[in-house]
């Protein structure tokens, strides 16, 4: 699992690549939270373009990042979900608090 971060003005782009499961999620979480705490962006944008697998651990990952970012006044967006990932995300009601695009 690879996590690449790019700061673009007030936005922090996080490009996720590989598999998101209960095994990989803690390492991804740490990288994102550290970067958000360090950069204090206005928007955290999680890009799922290169995610090859995701189970409900991905939902927990986004929920947790939303909570962390929200506490620091930062909005969370999720981009490039496949229909499968979007289906899993929507089961949680996440789309009410996190913008999907």
């Amino acid at each position: 699992m690879q996590v690449q971060t790019v700061v673009d003005g007030k936005a922090l782009h996080v490009y996720l690549a590989g598999e998101i499961d209960h095994d990989s999620a803690p390492r991804i979480r740490e990288k994102i939270d550290d970067k958000v705490t360090e950069c204090r962006p206005c928007v955290l944008r999680l890009d799922f373009s290169d995610v090859s697998f995701m189970d409900s651990s991905g939902v927990g990952l986004v929920m947790g990042r939303y909570r962390h970012a929200h506490a620091l006044g930062c909005a969370t967006e999720v981009t490039h979900l496949t229909p499968r990932y979007e289906k899993i995300m929507k089961m949680s009601g996440l789309s009410k608090i996190v913008k999907f695009s």
Partner: peptide
């Protein structure tokens, strides 16, 4: 039940719902 979980730590409580789906 969807979203039911006994642990915190970023678990979504969706495991069985996803399996059913």
């Amino acid at each position: 039940e969807p979203l039911f979980t006994t642990v915190g730590d970023d678990r979504s409580g969706l495991g069985f719902s996803v399996m059913e789906t």
